[in-house]
């Protein structure tokens, strides 16, 4: 594991301070504006549409093991499951990692219990550990989507090449698909197969977007301040690097 050098420590403290400061501001009632993210707004519509068609909903948390990405995915799972529970709809959750399976089960049960629908659907039928192998996971999801004729396919997590298989199967089944991933390399595949694609930091914004929890929204505002600092460092670095080019300086002086 690498260890922090002095600039990393300074930036870490600075960024943490920004995030915590904004969280405190949000907790004390400051209004944090969140811009509209089309891919996240359409989730409610997707759930509603699947309900109208009486087709199940699938929430795919990707292939994240125990990590920050998994927690972000599962917080959205909680939101989606609550919405579906209100409409008496099941949410199918294919899982690739054993630890993710254990946690998804808790989130799923908790959501249905919270809406008073505990016991309506069997856990083992809806949350299934498929496989840790990418090929097996992708094909299992594809088969599940086609057999059950999934109506709304929500892909929230990190994926490898199986993203194409899963998303294309959803496309062929006629499901409305929303992909939200922090992994950059699968974004092109999602863009061509899914109806809406959200990537990058918006993946981490999803939880705040749905819950409007002050901690989460304040954290988003803090992230924006951090990005401003990074932008400033980039501009400063470019200027310093350009101006300290020895030949450049000499040429400017001789010009």
């Amino acid at each position: 594991m690498e260890h922090a050098s002095a600039p990393v420590i300074i930036l870490f403290v600075l960024f943490a301070a920004f995030v915590l400061l904004q969280i405190q501001r949000a907790r004390h009632g400051a209004h944090i504006f969140l811009r509209r993210i089309a891919g996240l707004e359409v989730i409610d519509d997707a759930i509603g549409r699947a309900t109208e068609q009486d087709r199940p909903i699938m929430f795919n948390p990707g292939r994240d093991d125990l990590s920050v990405n998994l927690f972000c995915s599962l917080s959205v799972l909680g939101y989606v499951t609550r919405k579906a529970a209100k409409l008496n709809m099941p949410v199918n959750v294919p899982v690739s990692m054993p630890l993710a399976y254990a946690m998804a089960e808790e989130y799923w049960k908790d959501a249905y219990d919270a809406m008073g629908r505990g016991g309506m659907f069997a856990v083992e039928d809806n949350i299934r550990y498929l496989s840790g192998d990418q090929n097996a996971f992708g094909m299992s999801c594809a088969g599940w989507i086609k057999r059950e004729r999934i109506g709304a396919n929500l892909l929230f997590g990190s994926y490898g090449f199986e993203a194409m298989i899963i998303a294309e199967a959803g496309q062929q089944a006629g499901a409305i698909q929303v992909a939200c991933t922090p992994t950059f390399f699968q974004v092109p595949f999602f863009i061509v197969t899914c109806d809406y694609t959200v990537f990058g930091e918006e993946f981490y914004a999803a939880g705040a977007y749905f819950s409007h929890d002050p901690v989460l929204t304040g954290s988003l505002a803090g992230q924006d301040w951090c990005k401003l600092v990074v932008l400033g460092l980039i501009v400063a670095g470019i200027l310093v690097f350009t101006l300290t080019q020895q030949n450049l300086l000499a040429n400017l002086l001789l010009w």
Partner: peptide
């Protein structure tokens, strides 16, 4: 850059117990 900062903020929230979800 956005992903890394987002991950840092999410990790900070979870570490400090601020993220109830």
């Amino acid at each position: 850059i956005g992903i890394m900062i987002g991950g840092l903020a999410a990790g900070l929230r979870i570490w400090l117990g601020m993220d109830e979800s």
